[in-house]
Nucleic acid binder design. Sequence first.
DNA 1: AAAGATTGACTTGTCAATCTTA
DNA 2: TAAGATTGACAAGTCAATCTTT
Lengths: 141, 141
Amino acid sequence: VDLERIFDDLVRLETRWWNDLDTRLRRGGDVPLGTLNVLQVLDAVRPCRVQDVAQALEISVGGASQAVDRVEAKGFCVRTPNPADRRSSVLDLTDAGRDALARARPRVGEGLREFLAALPDDRVEEFGRTLAELRSALTKE
Amino acid sequence: VDLERIFDDLVRLETRWWNDLDTRLRRGGDVPLGTLNVLQVLDAVRPCRVQDVAQALEISVGGASQAVDRVEAKGFCVRTPNPADRRSSVLDLTDAGRDALARARPRVGEGLREFLAALPDDRVEEFGRTLAELRSALTKE
DNA sequence: AAAGATTGACTTGTCAATCTTA
DNA sequence: TAAGATTGACAAGTCAATCTTT
């Protein structure tokens, strides 16, 4: 098996899907895909701190802090002092943030359905299982 | 099937693998992974222009031009005026570039073997086939 | 001291405008 | 006019240094 080829295909596929989805979102007047990812984390993880965003997106804490800055500057979330630990803040979606999330999410779904239409359902499932296993194998290191 | 979860796992897996491999390379005194990718294209595609790098890496032409700038600044490739079309240059690896490529490549292989050790061989093969199919489905659009 | 977060300097990508040659 | 490439302004990540609170 040619592992370098697998890695190359993984990276390029991710690049193309990311850029294509991001372009769709921007053209449709929605938030960029990076912003959407943050909104999804804020919606799914509660309570949510900067650290939780970093972990969910597999990026550095510094990067997550800056990403939250941008989302907050657009009025999509607020930092509230954390009563349990004053070193951190709790991040909460605003109504505008929830609206942006609700508008953008379906567009991503559309794109993904098109991308994966090339594959029969059982292989899509298998693909998802494999990705999940490879990812969970990593976090155990 | 949860397509959003598949996309999320794809993006995060790529992020982790990329960052882990890049860290290994830098720690070992080798070129960064982005540079290695360019070297691999210059080695595989001949003759190679900036446009070919952009296509192979699925990045913009502007980004490819800058990436080649960096590789050239490190002395790993040279731009030679293209006799067949004077709008473009032909890119060639230098001896130093070939050395850097030969040193870095095996380290990436090591990392990938570790990452994929979590999976039996037949599923690694299947994973590779799926990635290739999904990618080729894209280029036809 | 260690943990959470922020900040500044840097890397590497995008896009739009521009230049040169076809 | 279009194609190949370059450039400058900007976007979004990394890391290391720092600040505050535990």
